[in-house]
Amino acid sequence: MSSTTNPAGGGPVGGPRAALYRYGVGGLAIALSVVVFLVPFAFIVLVAAMDAQQAGEFRFAWPRDVQLWDNLVEVVRTRDYLLIIAFINSLVLTVASVALTVVLGAMVAFVLQRRRTRFTGFVNFLVLAGLIMPPAIVPTIWVLQRVGLFATMPGLILVEVAFGLSFTILLFRAFISTIPRELDEAAVLDGAGPLRLFFRVVLPLLRPVLVTVVLVQSVNVFNDFQTPLYFLPGDAGATVQLTLFNFQSQNLSSYNLLFMDVLLITIPPLVLYLFFNRQIVAGMTAGAVKG
């Protein structure tokens, strides 16, 4: 990788070697990226536009008869508009759990960063544990059953909150440490209580990191498959990821519909990425570095 010229960006700007590297290696990388990364996505779109018979051939080919719209209508109609219900379920789950995670996580991060007590170390430990440790599934189901929340949407929302808190707290805590304490003191002198200080002074200042957290958590929850699979079984509460799984298990003959479903489920993250790629990238790497 380093035989052509300095790949780390410190080399001379001009010269034929630099040009060869820029266009030669760059061109090669682009060609490879098309094959490795774009072809699979193109395949999803192509199959989603095929008729059932051609889709079953698994070939990377132009659809004999482009029926993107027909397939869309058909997949939406399947099993009494299950997909629509699933999209609503996913939306409710994502919005509710991310909103709760963000507020609860920011409250913890705020006090955790500002006030040192003998519990601070323990709380930090719990936050890291939540990030690293796999959740104990059946005991969680047992707890949910005890409080009557198993296989309900509120139960699933709370589980997603519990699993998402650690990441949120870490990101918020790092950001809150850059907000000067003097601001808190000024607000307190002006007569603000803790809730007012938090919601009206601190939370607005968290906006950049808040956008990041909301985006990354939304993508995570929307894409989550394992948690809804365990905690919200059954068709009525199915999220979009589960419909994919159900179609895969039951509709093996019509791959065009299955891939239409894949396509539909890929669109929300794609849209978010197109509009907010800077924030998403920042959140992913920041979360990673802290983890």
Binding site: V108, P135, A162
Partner: peptide, 13 residues
């Protein structure tokens, strides 16, 4: 301020 998060995290994790 810890309490709401602690309840959810404690009970479900």
């Amino acid at each position: 301020f810890y309490l709401p998060a602690a309840i959810v995290y404690g009970a479900l994790f």
